[in-house]
Design a protein around this nucleic acid. Structure first.
Lengths: 334, 334
DNA sequence: CTGAAAGCGCTAACAC
DNA sequence: GTGTTAGCGCTTTCAG
């Protein structure tokens, strides 16, 4: 039951066994390598027998290119991100790149984590749900490693951003709620100082104003969590004139709001109160919620990241992908 | 708005600027490096100014150690895994290691992905929700890279496994359902040929037998999904004598069962039918479900992975961590 | 088409 | 303590 000796087999070993030079082995493993088909065959076959796998580290060293992109994800509790991470990984892999995951706990130093990333010579850093300090942005910029913010943007040089059109989403939510006949509107947001939250709110409020409706309540918290949604709903219903339409800046918040409304506050949705979320995570479609929401184009957003990676020398851009209203059962159709 | 020239600064550059040898720079960046405190200070300061970051690839090459562990995760749609991935990443990072993520789509060749992993000289490969073929197991074993199966085990040499005590979980579910007064029991499983599913079912059936109850229905499918749960519930209720207790081999399946039961089949839970899941994902605690379930000790399981990583030369082991019954509102307390 | 030789950036003896 | 030297495994000119 003991493992075979984990002796690393190198291209030299293969070369010797195949009776060729070491560089021939290298060429055999390079798709465009100038080498006779027959020779390549023989080398590959010997390699397989010996259990040879080219060392990506050595290759990266000499090629000055690691093909690794770093990914830093906060709040994995938002159902939206696992999906994104999955397709991002798959797409990147299909493009010959690998994802290296970085984590940054609440009490940890993000700075520290990011330096680790730099040591691994990542090609770029994709960040979600994380606040990017100027210092960090500068470190990366100086190292020539582009930062790609996902679902957030900041005004830092060398920083790319891929976001959906959050403001439009906010406007759609406003129209949906007004169209459902709501008159006392509330906004329940997450991280107040994030661009995402601000844009969603701004679009919502702007559209409300255009249609002559005031925003009656606005609650915000640093988290996008279920628990916060529950608390927010309870807070909201403490008022004498309670809202009849609630726009939540994430589906997860909306789930909390919905549950509190139905289970704890004995309200009917959408009869007494309409609720609309943002993201369109898989659960939003589940029977228990059937949540009306604004769908983020997650695949297109991942696509946009790939696009940036393909052309990293271009001036930093902010991509703004279109969103879509998905009407389900927490709003009345209009 | 153009990026600064991404000229890589090396330890030689730092050495020159600090007036020391290149190896001094290396030592300055090695915690135990024998070097005068003053010299180190100077070097580090020069390094910072120049924006120097040690190249992990070069280091790994010479040290023959990459500190990278590969992670391959199927079914990210099961809420259980994002959480696992997060803590795994965090823990590994705290141990000076990094996670490299690998993906394998439905139509892709897993073989292919895994060879990529081998090229990156990963220290070990953690795999979840993936069937490990003998071929693959052999490839890794020959390369001296331990495979750590998470939540699954197979009988292959060189393969470690970290699982919870699924059979006990099944037994607990049986007791909970019988305790709730159920008499016609059903099992709704996922991937039939996975050890996890089999063990859960086996424990359930065994305990049922011990208490003199027969298993009335057993449905299985290749997926652990919500949709499958819905379909299963509908199938189950087509029978003349419908079950009054259902054990689902994952929470996600249970959510589908519950929703179908309540929304589509007009059954009351737990009055008409009791339901119990497995995993205890965050949503199980949400008001909309309040699902009784068997909790997997995810943190302990991650811990066990770390443990194996610390001692990879030990004979492959199968860790079997204790589970716990969490009674909520889809069963009647007993 | 193939082999020889020169490094990629770093660590680890080995002398001083 | 510090510098010098020899590679880690590979790609890439450069000859042939």
């Amino acid at each position: 039951m003991s493992l075979p000796p984990p002796k690393k087999v190198t291209s030299h070993d293969v070369a010797k066994a195949a009776g060729v030079s070491q560089s021939a082995v290298s060429r055999a493993f390079t798709p465009e390598g100038k080498i006779a088909a027959k020779t390549r065959q023989r080398i590959l076959s010997v390699a397989r027998q010996l259990g040879y796998h080219p060392n990506a580290f050595a290759r990266s060293l000499v090629q000055q290119k690691t093909n690794i992109v770093g990914v830093l994800m906060g709040s994995i509790d938002n159902q939206f991100y696992p999906k994104v991470l999955e397709t991002l990984t798959a797409q990147l892999q299909a493009n010959g790149r690998q994802v290296m995951l970085f984590s940054v706990g609440p009490d940890e130093d993000i700075e520290d984590t990011l330096l680790r990333a730099l040591q691994y010579q990542i090609e770029a850093m994709v960040m979600t749900s994380v606040t990017l300090s100027s210092t960090v942005a500068k470190t990366f910029s100086e190292a020539g490693v582009p930062v790609i913010l996902f679902n957030r943007y900041v005004d830092e040089p060398g920083t790319f951003a891929v976001v959906c059109d959050n403001a439009s989403g906010g406007r759609m939510a406003a129209d949906a709620l007004i169209g459902a006949g709501c008159e006392r509107l509330a906004f329940v947001g997450g991280t107040p100082n994030s661009s995402t939250n601000q844009d969603r709110k701004r679009g919502f409020v702007e559209r409300l104003a255009e249609r002559g409706v005031a925003l009656s309540f606005a609650l915000e918290d640093k988290s996008y969590s279920y628990g916060w949604g529950q608390r927010a709903a309870e807070l909201l219903l403490k008022n004498k004139a309670i809202p009849d339409g609630i726009f939540c800046s994430s589906d997860t918040i909306a789930f909390g709001v919905l549950d509190a409304l139905r289970t704890r506050l004995a309200k009917r949705v959408p009869d007494d109160v309409c609720v609309i979320g943002f993201d369109d995570v898989p659960m939003a479609a589940w029977d228990a919620y059937a949540l009306s929401t604004i769908r983020q184009p997650s695949d297109a957003m991942v696509e946009a990241v790939l696009e940036i990676l393909k052309n990293p020398d271009a001036a930093p851009v902010k991509r703004d992908l279109p969103v879509q209203l998905i009407q389900r059962n927490t709003t009345r159709p209009y």
